[in-house]
Design a protein around this nucleic acid. Sequence first.
DNA 1: GAAACGAGTTTCATTATTTGGAACCTGTTG
DNA 2: CAACAGGTTCCAAATAATGAAACTCGTTTC
Lengths: 263, 263
Amino acid sequence: MNSQVRQQGGADGTVGKALEVLDQVADKGRPVRFSELLAETSHPKATLYRLLQTLTNQGMLAYDEDRQTYAPGLRLVRLAHSAWRQSSLAPVARPYLTALAQKVGETIHLAQLDRGQVLYVDKMNAAEPIEMFSQAGKVGPGYCTGVGKAMMAFLDADDRQDAINRQAYFAHTPNTLTTPDALAAELDRIKAEGVSYDREEHEPGIICIAAPILSSTGRVIGALSITTSTSRQSFDGLEQHRAALLRTAQDIAGAAESWQFPT
Amino acid sequence: MNSQVRQQGGADGTVGKALEVLDQVADKGRPVRFSELLAETSHPKATLYRLLQTLTNQGMLAYDEDRQTYAPGLRLVRLAHSAWRQSSLAPVARPYLTALAQKVGETIHLAQLDRGQVLYVDKMNAAEPIEMFSQAGKVGPGYCTGVGKAMMAFLDADDRQDAINRQAYFAHTPNTLTTPDALAAELDRIKAEGVSYDREEHEPGIICIAAPILSSTGRVIGALSITTSTSRQSFDGLEQHRAALLRTAQDIAGAAESWQFPT
DNA sequence: GAAACGAGTTTCATTATTTGGAACCTGTTG
DNA sequence: CAACAGGTTCCAAATAATGAAACTCGTTTC
């Protein structure tokens, strides 16, 4: 039913269940009725009811009395504000992204890895002005995006295997890698080469070149990509930007390193 | 110690406690150590430890092994993406804000009420490009901001009283209203007049004019403000924008009304 | 207009989870 | 090397979550 990756393995207690419900509501992308959630969940009526009550009570969900629907609550927006500022690369990387976007004239994505999935934390659309949350916070698959593969390639063995296992391997296009083995092989190539490509593996006509952002100790902290469409640019065109991309990735890594919070 | 408003009255069960801890970490605004949290909380060591474990496990917190610190996790960013799109006025209001910002050439804020506090969901800075989460998600006090007072003024009796009770009444400036009675009186005036003002009540030199955004049934769904500084504009200058402000508020209300999700 | 229905809410004895004091690690400091 | 501080784990007692069933209340059906 859901071609996305499963995320929370084991439920840790009540909190885990509550957050699972929260995700369920959020994933819907629109206000949901109690019964709709009930149909999808394994929890009995009363349990689901109380979980929703608690979450609503806490402002994590908003309940529309008129329509009898639940939607993600504003408290999340408040919390995310902190999360974005602290745990994401975005604030630090902003200036570098801007510079790169202007230089290459293509769309730049900044992403981080969240449980095997790609979480876009910033986007720069050379031409148009920035779109807020409409882009930051979006998630995408790890196995068929440039940034996803770039980050996975540089994980250590355990985490890498874990990430490989979490993928959904849905064939979005004829070029999509659809087996763990194929992905693993591609990751090896990427690690050797230093950059990854999306060869229309996610959406037809969309290609990109991506590079990981690595800390001085070699840990993956994010990735950066230059995206374009086959109608605008050839693959060779992207290749031209390789140096600038790698340079920017390094710059961001450096900035992130030095800008650790004052303790 | 904390001059802000208390938010979650009673703890609902384990989930409530976990979210309380989450807030605590988020409010710090920087990575925190276990012991630092322990010192502030009433929970015993073991309990706090397990709550943090659970939250980290779930991706609501991120744990930095090297530094042994906790920070809000990326899962929040993902969730907030949904929340912002669904529960906030921002996506609908965007075009109207842009138009208004260009017309008046001042900073525009769009806010909603979250438990007596003002939550800014969008901002338009006529001149500069938009800053992402750095503005959206920010919270402010209700009793001494234009948008806060505008929203409170149009709540129904119960909610209004509740909101009045939740305020901290800290005297940020000599003009700040510091008693529930003074605030109530001001709210009456605002309700009669239709717009509210911030007369340097929050920050010296900063003034604004704000209007509520009301649904067709009269429910408060948000507020809108035009902000400037005394050095740039007089009070009368702001007054000039009253009509445009009210007009925009109405337009947004209309747009929000018709753009309810397809059920 | 009564009866059946569907969606949501509450009850209560049972069961499973959370609790927290204290003991236990483990790397640091005097 | 002993004392220590910041973390982590144990386990019996206390508490909170569970879920089948009963109950509202507003609709639809006969």
